[in-house]
Structures are given as structure tokens and as C-alpha cells.
């Protein structure tokens, strides 16, 4: 018998700091809000974008795992989140640009309560924050959704993958699932204010494993390279 009282990782933070914390854990209220939001997004993607998902069987049966993909619009994270079901959906966190999504109180609340996003600060993420993300992935058995290009593509072409992904999974048994989303750039290019209804196809590839890669620069670079190749292989 294991008695273990584990307070929330975000206990003692002020409300605003809690929203922006990498340790934020969802309670019953957040769970309900996210459930409603997820179902709305699923309905929207099915009706407005006729979303087709290929290779759903490649998703690991249970968390933890990491979903990665090409990044060309705000629809990407919503689409990847929408294919998760059950425990994976409840524990799915989108890693989102802090400067964009967590700048104001209202946008932070939306990102936290609806999308269930965790902030990553471009070029300013501290070692401690990265370690929190890395530890939580395994300890809390989470699903991360992230875009290793680091930013949305301006022309729809995929850019080179950054090494951040490697710092989360190198040397761990956590599988990385490559995805390619087709049609998102056309549906919602970065310069448009609103998306327009056009078809989306999501291809999910076979999981990659990086337990053998060292958690250092060489390992991170290898992970970035292999992941990028796996995503590119899904382009038709």
C-alpha cells in the first residue's frame, strides 16, 4: 500500500501565475470547460473542414506520448488535440508560444481553461521550466502536442525542426508520434484573421522512440533530424 499525498504542482501560485505555470494541473472545473471546448472544436472541424484522419491506429494505446507536426496555422494544435480520446484527451497539453497566448489575462484564461495549453517562452524558456515539462510528461503520464518548427510557416512550406523536442524526450521511453496536417495553410494562413472552410487531412505516422539518445546537444540534434524526416515522409 502506497500512501501518497501529492499537492497540486501549482499550489500556492497566484491565479495569474497559475495560468502561466508549466506545472498547472486541471481540476474538475477546467476538465468540464475543456471537455465542452473539445467537443465544439471536433464538431467545427468535421463540419467546416471535413477533417479526414488517416493512421489513427498509430496512436499509442495510453499516455505518455508526444504528438508533433508541421505548423502553418492556428488550426494545427486544435486539430491534433481533437484526435485524442479518453485519458489521452484529458491529459493532452498543447505547448504554445507564451508571448502570443499568455500575454494578457483573458487570453491566458482561454489558453488554460479551453485549449489546455502550457506556455513555452521562445528563446527564454529556463532550464527549470524545461525540466518541469520533461518530468511531468512521464510522472503525470501526459500527452504533449508541439510543433518543432517553433513558429507558424509563413508560406506553407515546412521549416527545419528545432532541438527543443529533444530536451523533453531524449533518453526516455516516451514515444514521439509524427503527424502531417494538409490544407491548414490554405484554410487559415498567418495573415488572415479568420479561417475559411476548406478541407483538412491529418496523417498520423508510426511512433518514434528515442530512449537510446543522450539528453544533450548531439541527441537533441539527432531527434530533431529524425522527427523532421518522419513528418516529411507523410507529405503526399
Amino acid at each position: 500500500m502506497k500512501w501518497e499525498l501529492r499537492p497540486a504542482r501549482d499550489l500556492g501560485l497566484s491565479p495569474m501565475d497559475r495560468l502561466r505555470s508549466q506545472g498547472r494541473e486541471a481540476g474538475l472545473g477546467s476538465l468540464a470547460a475543456q471537455g465542452v471546448w473539445r467537443r465544439m472544436v471536433r464538431g467545427y472541424l468535421a463540419v467546416a473542414h471535413r477533417l479526414v484522419v488517416e493512421g489513427r491506429e498509430n496512436l499509442p494505446p495510453a499516455p505518455p506520448y508526444v504528438l508533433i507536426g508541421n505548423h502553418s496555422s492556428h488550426l494545427d494544435a486544435l486539430t491534433l488535440c481533437s484526435v485524442l480520446r479518453g485519458a489521452a484527451a484529458r491529459r493532452g497539453y498543447a505547448l504554445a508560444a507564451g508571448d502570443f497566448f499568455f500575454s494578457s489575462g483573458a487570453s491566458s484564461a482561454f489558453a488554460a481553461y479551453a485549449v489546455n495549453a502550457l506556455p513555452v517562452w521562445r528563446r527564454r524558456t529556463t532550464r527549470k521550466e524545461l525540466n518541469t515539462l520533461r518530468d511531468r510528461l512521464v510522472e503525470d503520464s501526459l500527452v504533449y502536442i508541439l510543433f518543432p518548427e517553433g513558429t507558424r510557416s509563413r508560406d506553407g512550406e515546412m521549416a527545419k525542426f528545432q532541438m527543443g523536442l529533444g530536451t523533453l524526450v531524449a533518453g526516455t521511453p516516451v514515444p514521439v508520434v509524427p503527424c502531417y496536417l494538409e490544407g491548414a495553410h490554405k484554410a487559415w494562413p498567418p495573415d488572415a484573421r479568420f479561417p475559411k472552410p476548406s478541407p483538412l487531412v491529418l496523417r498520423i505516422g508510426k511512433p518514434l522512440h528515442f530512449a537510446g539518445q543522450p539528453n544533450e546537444k548531439a541527441g537533441w540534434a539527432a531527434i530533431a533530424e529524425q522527427s523532421e524526416a518522419a513528418v516529411r515522409a507523410l507529405i503526399r
Binding site: R6, P7, A8, L11, E25, G27, L28
Partner: peptide
């Protein structure tokens, strides 16, 4: 209840917290 749940970790038991 919310504070107690988060402090003790009971909030991870969604069903019982509910």
C-alpha cells in the same frame, strides 16, 4: 472543497471529487 482537493491531491480523482 476546491482548495482541499488541490492541496491533498484528491483533485486527480475526478470521479470522487465530482
Amino acid at each position: 472543497l476546491r482548495e482541499y482537493d488541490r492541496a491533498t491531491g484528491l483533485f486527480r480523482e475526478y470521479l470522487l471529487a465530482g
